[in-house]
Nucleic acid binder design. Structure first.
Lengths: 227, 227
DNA sequence: TGTCAACTGTCAGCGGCTGTCATTAGCCTC
DNA sequence: GAGGCTAATGACAGCCGCTGACAGTTGACA
């Protein structure tokens, strides 16, 4: 890679520009591994599925699996990574006049479709949604998910701090809002995944509803002003 | 402790009533394993410390380690578990008139000392504090820590829901406040652990300061009303 | 077509963790 | 205080996630 150019193949800094048989095969193997993994996970459970199972389902050796994915967990979150990056893009694109919490909420509302499309490129959206329930019910995966979520929060907190012209290490507010936002998201995921209707639309609606409740839920006595 | 009764050993349904040489040895082994583990973790790092290392430091077989702790991780969080239960107790003890967020904040403020004492029973408080930095800088431990934190949040959310007479599955507010509270705690831990002064007092002060910023940080535009 | 590099499989090995079984050692009774 | 009972332990074997090393295969490109 990085063969700069005089004559023949362009091969600029662009990734995956001209496929080439090799790249194509690679991508196909990776996709197959990914899909096999998610299918086995959702069908038999994460812990119950060995890396050997996945490799066998994709007709490669176990060693090859680890050349495509750093770990079993890495494969499990491959799709999520894609979805998250879309959300980050959406936050970046928000007009800077918006208050932080509004920017986050609107960025999310806006990115649902983009995310859906991006996921569908890799694996059936339905499969990815079902896998969320596996995450939620598998301690090891849930732990990894939460850690990844806080990393994402840190990234977004920096974006927010940038928008507001604040030093993230001197003013805790960017991290706090983002953490609060993330906390609500997590609660939503949790409740959503326990439901029967685990579709994307349901998640979207739940999220919107809960985000509206943040401020009222924090303020004072609930027994006085109901609703 | 609690040796009452007539003549020989009562041995009622009470746990750990009369030590007995056996129980005593067991407890000593467990404490030794625990302390060895934490010392090795803080000195050489979590991943770098083998269970064999820990077992050897405590002069038992590796198999015995796993009879005391379900996993390496389990040993790592043994002390934290104790501290958390103190906090839960404190929340339970709060007068029911207090608004939820106030109850949480005051329960925390109140339990610092209790926690410190309880920890000291098991291992040097200093060691436990230093270990928090290991958690924060070890991906696997951080992940586990976050998962455990959300489990704790669920427990506390139920307590809050109880206080307010709400059905936790119909009203999201208990989970939301607790999640927000927990989110602020996490941000605090993170910032605290990155500091030089990683003492208990510093953590306590930071937490208090940040909790006061929750509501203002959520409300509207930061650029207008500064501090 | 032949050379080079990328991709892959095989093998060996480590660390976390578990089941099994024989041995040890506290406990309890007679 | 000698015996039997049972909990606690150690030793061993084995599974699974994961990694390094080496050799074989297969696209890429002159």
């Amino acid at each position: 890679m990085k063969v700069a150019g005089t004559s023949a193949p362009p091969e600029t800094a662009l990734a995956a520009s001209r496929p080439g048989l090799r790249e194509l095969k690679k991508q196909r193997t990776r996709d197959l591994l990914l899909r096999s993994a998610l299918e086995l996970f959702t069908e038999h459970g994460y812990e119950e599925t060995t890396v050997d199972d996945i490799a066998e389902a994709a007709d490669v050796s176990q060693r090859t699996f680890f050349r495509y994915f750093a770990s079993k967990e890495d494969a499990a979150f491959f799709v999520s990574r894609l979805a998250e990056s879309r959300f980050v893009d959406a936050v970046h694109a928000r007009p800077p006049e918006e208050a932080p919490l509004d920017a986050l909420r609107l960025a999310l509302a806006e990115s649902w479709n983009t995310i859906g499309e991006a996921v569908e490129q890799l694996v059936p959206l339905d499969l990815h949604m079902r896998f969320y329930r596996v995450i939620e019910s598998t301690p090891a995966l849930l732990a990894a998910h939460l850690r990844r979520a806080t990393e994402l929060e840190e990234e977004i907190a920096r974006v927010i701090a940038g928008r507001e012209g604040l030093d993230i290490d001197r003013d805790p507010r960017p991290r706090v809002v983002v953490a609060v936002f993330g906390a609500v998201m997590r609660v939503t995921e949790r409740i959503w995944s326990a439901r029967d209707d685990a579709g994307l639309a349901a998640l979207r609606d739940l999220t919107a509803a809960y985000l509206d409740q943040v401020t009222p839920a924090l303020a004072g006595n609930w027994r006085r002003a109901e609703t």
